[in-house]
Every structure is written in structure tokens, then in C-alpha cells.
């Protein structure tokens, strides 16, 4: 019998073999579809010089990914700066909740890409437009989860604050935020995941340096192996972003700190 540890290695490897076999079969059927071996050798080439810069249209993969990440973090940071205070407000005030809720419910299901033409018209510049689209993408989960965190503060803790006559400021920092922070990080983690999904599509539309446009550009160059490389690298980076946010979230979560 194989142990559960060797299972953890063997089973994904087995599936990997099956995927490679199916992939090879597809590339044998469709002329020009790159087989796994070609993608592998191209991947080595792409990764061998990730930082080259031959002007706006031709840059290394690390620069492409870096530009996309910078836009994601720009829009994400703006969304935190706006979303957390708004979330705190609508979590603490019934009136603010009543005022904001209909708009949040209506705007939340709108694809962030629908904002792109409007943003392009307003900003007349692709970088700001992409950052704005990521901002719109990220803000809803952050607002909603922050408000949820605030509303999950137990009445007992608030009674403690009332007996001790904490000021509103002290109440936010000593009672509400410690409870809400894990929720805020859950919202941030969701946001970052969606933002990384959306940036690829946004860049395909806006052009410029970035992984999304790189993939689109390689399609126009008939360089299909690079498209597959792009998909793999986007996946790896998305996984790393999610895992890093998970670690940061755990660090700020008192429920995971107290019980060592």
C-alpha cells in the first residue's frame, strides 16, 4: 500500500501524465497547436531572459507580469483605502446601510469590464483606466465583508465598551476592528483573486505592457505556445497571491493567534 504522502505526489503525477497525453493528442489533430514538448522548450527560452526590454512592444515576461501586478496592486490599494472606511460606516450605522445597500446590490453584479470604456473616455489613458477597473472589481467584496465583520461584533463586547465609556474612536480600534479584521482580510483575499482574473481581460482591451496584452499579442503573432505559457504563469502567480494573502490574513486573525 502507498502511504498518504506518496499518494499526494503520485496522484497529481498520474493526472499530469493523462493531461499531457490528451494535450499531445489534441496537438496531433489541430495543425499548429503546440505540443507539450514545444511549450516546455519555449518556456525555458521565455524564462531565460525575463527582463529584456526592446521598447514598448517587446519586453520580457517578468516585465509583462510586473506591469500587470502593479496595476492590480494599485487598484487593490485604492479599493482598500475606500472600501474599508465605507464598510465600517455601513456596518456601524443602520442609516448608512440603508442608504448604500441598494447601490451596492445593483453595482456589484456589473462586470468590471463594463466600466472600461467609460473609464477610458474619462481618463484617456490606459494605465489609469486599468487601475480604475481593478478598483471597481476589488471594492465590493471589501465593503461587504468589512460591514459583515462589523455587524458580527457581539452585543456583549459593545456593552463592555459602553460600561467602560469608550469613545467612538476607542470603540472602533479596541472592539470593532479586532473582530472585523479577519473578515476584512477575507474580503481582500476574494478581491485580489478576482482582480487577477480581471486584469488579463482588461489588458487585452487596453493594450500596453502587461500579461493580458502579451497573450493577445502572441495570438496575433500566431505564437500559440506563448499563450499556453501565459496561462500557466498567470495560474502560478494567482496561486502565490492567494497563498500570501492567506498567510497575512492568518497573521491578523486573533482566532488563529490565541490558540497556540
Amino acid at each position: 500500500m502507498v502511504s498518504k504522502y506518496s499518494n499526494a505526489v503520485l496522484l497529481p503525477l498520474l493526472l499530469f501524465g493523462i493531461v499531457i497525453a490528451i494535450w499531445s493528442a489534441i496537438s496531433a489533430q489541430i495543425p499548429g497547436f503546440p505540443p507539450p514538448s514545444e511549450v516546455w522548450s519555449e518556456l525555458l527560452v521565455v524564462l531565460s531572459d525575463p527582463f529584456y526590454n526592446n521598447g514598448a512592444g517587446d519586453q520580457g515576461i517578468a516585465l509583462q507580469l510586473g506591469n500587470s501586478l502593479a496595476r492590480v496592486f494599485g487598484g487593490f490599494a485604492l479599493a482598500i483605502a475606500v472600501g474599508v472606511p465605507v464598510g465600517l460606516l455601513i456596518g456601524m450605522s443602520k442609516n448608512a446601510y440603508t442608504a448604500f445597500n441598494p447601490y451596492i446590490q445593483i453595482l456589484k453584479p456589473v462586470s468590471p469590464l463594463a466600466w472600461l470604456p467609460l473609464a477610458l473616455f474619462v481618463f484617456k489613458e490606459v494605465n489609469t483606466t486599468a487601475i480604475f477597473v481593478i478598483f471597481v472589481t476589488s471594492i465590493w467584496p471589501i465593503i461587504i465583508n468589512t460591514a459583515l465583520g462589523v455587524r458580527s461584533v457581539s452585543e456583549d463586547y459593545l456593552n463592555v465598551a459602553r460600561v467602560l465609556q469608550l469613545s467612538p474612536f476607542e470603540r472602533v480600534f479596541q472592539i470593532i476592528l479586532p473582530v472585523a479584521v479577519p473578515f476584512i482580510f477575507t474580503g481582500m483575499r476574494l478581491s485580489l483573486g478576482i482582480a487577477w482574473l480581471v486584469i488579463v481581460a482588461a489588458e487585452m482591451l487596453t493594450g500596453g505592457v502587461g500579461i493580458g496584452f502579451w497573450i493577445w499579442d502572441e495570438y496575433n503573432n500566431l505564437n500559440y505556445s506563448h499563450i499556453i505559457i501565459g496561462i500557466i504563469l498567470i495560474g502560478v502567480i494567482g496561486y502565490i497571491l492567494d497563498a500570501a494573502m492567506g498567510l497575512i490574513a492568518d497573521f491578523f486573525d486573533y482566532r488563529k493567534r490565541g490558540l497556540k
Binding site: D156, Y157, N159, V160, Q174, P178, Y254, R255, R257, G258
Partner: peptide, 8 residues
């Protein structure tokens, strides 16, 4: 009744 200590 339920002590209401702040768990963090």
C-alpha cells in the same frame, strides 16, 4: 453571564 472577555 457569558463573561464577555475580549478574545484577542
Amino acid at each position: 453571564q457569558n463573561h464577555s472577555l475580549l478574545p484577542w
